[in-house]
């Protein structure tokens, strides 16, 4: 299959309207590891013939790290710019592979005039599975031990715990829950703009602590749903020298690989 990425401005020029905007996010656009997740999710959208578009160069950072670091000016500038773009196109529905983008657009844009139906890709994929549109083959993950690392901005911040698990269960895999999961999940260490700076002085890195908890259950795969968690846990697995035995894989990649997309 020849995969396509329709860009919003082109679609409008052709007089077409997408059903949903795929919000790629900065990590999804620029970070090499996250780009692979973006590609996997794009393949799923293509395979299911979903009428989607990306904003392309018109997309800007949602402002999440600036607001959380305490710089409201930068947040407002980016947020208002994005809202102007989205409203200008009359966007109704957005799906994103980043829980930080998801949280900001869903919870913080409405007060600034940006009201959309916003879904995280785990919810979107769950919907597609439930509607019978997306069939997931067990494929390479059948019977594999998969544990899931809850992203704070999906879990505690927005109460989304089941959607990611539905996807893993659809793979016919063995979902192993660690002790500290769901509401008790430990942060990967990247939230609140920590992704962009060194840890403060302490006796351990947060991602090392979290990875330790995850590898305790001897998983074959650590499933993640956030590009920052992905980076942090991947680094953690590497520093434990376990990268050959344990793969850190995003939910979209799990589905794409299982279905051989």
């Amino acid at each position: 299959m020849q995969y396509k990425v329709p860009v919003m401005s082109d679609m409008v020029a052709e007089g077409k309207i997408p059903d949903v905007i795929f919000w790629v996010g900065c990590a999804g656009s620029f970070d090499q590891r996250a780009q692979r997740v973006t590609i996997a999710f794009t393949k799923i959208l293509n395979q299911l013939n979903i009428n989607f578009a990306v904003l392309g160069t018109e997309e800007a950072c949602t402002g999440d790290p600036a607001r959380r670091a305490g710089n409201e000016f930068i947040f407002q500038m980016l947020a208002q710019q994005n809202i102007a773009t989205l409203n200008n196109y009359g966007i109704k529905k957005i799906v994103t592979t980043c829980p930080h983008c998801f949280n900001t657009i869903k919870n913080e844009y409405p007060e600034l005039g940006g009201k959309y139906e916003v879904l995280h890709h785990s919810q979107y994929l769950q919907e597609l599975i439930n509607e019978g549109k997306l069939k997931v083959e067990g494929g390479p993950f059948k019977g594999k031990r998969i544990t899931y690392h809850d992203s704070c901005y999906l879990g505690r911040a927005n109460g989304i715990y089941e959607a990611p698990r539905t996807i893993i269960e659809a793979l016919d895999a063995d979902l192993i829950e660690i002790n500290k999961c769901k509401t008790n999940g430990l942060c990967c260490g990247a939230g609140g703009a920590q992704m962009f700076k060194e840890d403060e002085p302490g006796n351990k890195r947060i991602n090392t602590e979290r990875t330790g908890q995850l590898i305790e259950v001897y998983p074959d795969v650590i499933a993640v749903a956030c590009p920052f968690c992905n980076t942090m846990i991947t680094d953690g697995v590497k520093s434990e020298n376990k990268q050959d035995d344990i793969k850190v894989v995003d939910l979209a990649e799990l589905v794409a690989q299982a279905n051989n997309y």
């Binding site: 800007a60 600036a66 700076k197």
Partner: peptide, 25 residues
């Protein structure tokens, strides 16, 4: 963080990538 703020302001991303490269993936 100062670098991050500057990147966000100038490149609309927390990293130093050009906004025109957003579709490079």
């Amino acid at each position: 963080w100062n670098n991050m703020f500057a990147n966000m302001e100038n490149n609309q991303a927390p990293w130093q990538f050009s906004p025109s490269d957003r579709l490079k993936w």
